[in-house]
């Protein structure tokens, strides 16, 4: 493999001669191989969606969650190694609880992102640890600024605020579609259909395992609280998505 680091890639504490930390990049690979997660800042709030690959038909629907509550106004969608993501979610909840205990109010999405980033970054600094194989999308409503925000924390500990972002297997295609469809200008309720479609389009039915979609929002409709989107609503969106994909294919055939 040409891109591997010839001995410079065995520890998160080793820089390569050209200034790279290979272990962080490899951890990112784990995220890139996993189910797609999409976050969008819509007209009326934030929408989170995750493609959850199902490994067995014996699984109970809804198990192995990928979207989590953190505070009443903040939720996260995660992708990568599920076990790793759970540590990050736990930490996010601890940070939120600590903040509330100290200051008597809920933590802002921005500050929570900063704290989660610090946590994730710590694991890139020590030889006795490994970086997280997980990316975290943080959606929340800031009571102070009265706006909904979307952030993403990467395995390196870097985080940015986004209008729209995608990670996982289908990230490239998803990003293109989000920009093309101007999903950011829709309401969450409309956007969720298109997001369902994006996930279905990017999913290779022949090659990839079957999947389940999990979605949540922090928007006007939910009173700017973080709420899981009802499974029936998601099913309806998927139905629309599949019909729409079929219609597109018919158009192509003509």
């Amino acid at each position: 493999m040409s891109s591997t680091g010839a001995g410079y890639d065995l520890s998160a504490t080793t820089f390569s001669p050209d200034g790279k930390i290979f272990q962080v990049e490899y951890a990112t690979k784990a995220v890139e191989n996993s189910g797609t997660a999409i976050g969008i800042k819509c007209k009326d709030g934030i929408l989170l969606a995750v493609e959850k690959l199902l490994l067995s038909k014996l699984l109970v629907p809804g198990t192995n969650k990928r979207v989590h509550h953190v505070t009443p106004r903040i939720g996260v969608a995660v992708t990568g190694l599920t076990a790793d993501t759970r540590q990050i979610v736990n930490r996010a909840r601890d940070e939120a609880a600590n903040y509330k205990e100290s200051y008597g109010d809920y933590i802002s999405p921005k500050l929570l992102t900063e704290r989660v980033s610090n946590y994730v970054h710590y694991f890139t600094m020590h030889g006795s640890l490994r970086p997280f194989g997980a990316s975290t999308l943080i959606a929340g409503y800031d009571d102070e600024t009265k706006e909904a925000q979307l952030h993403m924390v990467e395995p390196s500990g870097v985080s940015y605020r986004y209008f729209g972002c995608a990670v996982g297997k289908g990230r490239q295609g998803a990003k293109t579609e989000i920009e093309k469809l101007k999903v950011m200008e829709m309401t969450c309720r409309v956007a969720m259909k298109h997001v369902a479609k994006i996930l279905h389009v990017l999913h290779d039915e022949a090659k990839d395992k079957p999947f389940e979609i999990e979605m949540s929002w922090v928007c006007e409709e939910s009173g700017f609280k973080h709420a899981m989107i009802d499974t029936q609503l998601i099913k309806d969106a998927e139905k629309w998505a599949k019909e729409s994909i079929e219609a597109d294919e018919m158009d192509d055939d003509e």
Binding site: M1, L10, A12, Q23, Y26, A27, R130, G133
Partner: peptide, 10 residues
């Protein structure tokens, strides 16, 4: 356990 492979595996 703390080393990722280039493919992102443990």
């Amino acid at each position: 356990v703390t080393v990722w492979s280039p493919q992102g595996r443990l």
